[in-house]
């Protein structure tokens, strides 16, 4: 699937470069892109190391277990398989909480360790489980409390009321997250029905 995604991006780019004649820019982009990947990963590496370390401390101290217990009435409905088996619950709780608190930098490394944990429990390791899909889809529509970058950009652009977007953003992102969860549950059920046939 990732290969298909790669193919689509590359073929669309090459096709778009034919009428525009942008092939020189395309070659430069390949060189820059590869270099960017390293810079990006290195800057991600610092955050990943920090948050994985913090996560380990909070886990050992029992903070995450407490948080998982508080949030479990909601998360149990969203990630039924993880909560049934009792594995990866803490990792999922940590990454979802980081997303809601708006510390996206921390959410990615936490989510990655949740994905790795889910993969350990995966009975069919080449195929994504329902919980993996829900976790990744939720991250594409993160229900953030405060869109700080947006507010900063709006203030810089001279908006009269930089904060007026906050309430509409909450409504929209909450609805999108809910829509994503419902779709995931529906598709998961449909997939399970097909497998049983």
């Amino acid at each position: 699937m990732l290969g298909v995604c790669f193919f689509i991006l590359i073929s669309v780019s090459v096709a778009a470069a034919i009428p525009t004649g942008n092939f020189g820019a395309l070659s430069n982009a390949i060189v820059d892109g590869a270099a960017q990947a390293v810079t990006l990963t290195l800057s991600l590496a610092g955050m990943m190391a920090l948050w994985c370390g913090v996560m380990r401390v909070l886990q050992e101290a029992g903070v995450i277990r407490l948080l998982a217990r508080v949030l479990s009435p909601v998360l149990r409905l969203v990630f039924p398989d993880a909560w049934r088996s009792g594995r990866a619950c803490e990792e999922i709780t940590a990454s979802v909480s980081a997303n809601i608190l708006g510390i996206g930098n921390a959410a990615t490394p936490l989510a990655l360790s949740a994905m790795a944990k889910l993969q350990e429990e995966n009975p069919t390791p080449d195929t994504a489980t329902d919980d993996m899909i829900t976790l990744s889809v939720l991250a594409t529509a993160p229900p953030a409390l405060l869109p700080t970058t947006l507010i900063a950009l709006r203030r810089a652009a001279g908006a009269a009321r930089p904060y007026e977007i906050v309430l509409p953003v909450w409504i929209t992102s909450a609805a999108c997250a809910l829509f994503g969860i419902v779709l995931c549950r529906l598709f998961a059920r449909a997939g399970r029905g097909r497998r049983r046939d």
Binding site: C5, F6, L9, I10, V12, S13, V14, A15, A16, A17, T20, N22, A25, L26, N28, A29, I30, D32, G33, A34, Q36, A37, L40
Partner: peptide, 12 residues
């Protein structure tokens, strides 16, 4: 990153 950089630069 390479695929995305190409997509941005291609004018697509």
């Amino acid at each position: 990153c390479v695929a995305l950089a190409m997509f941005r630069a291609s004018g697509a």
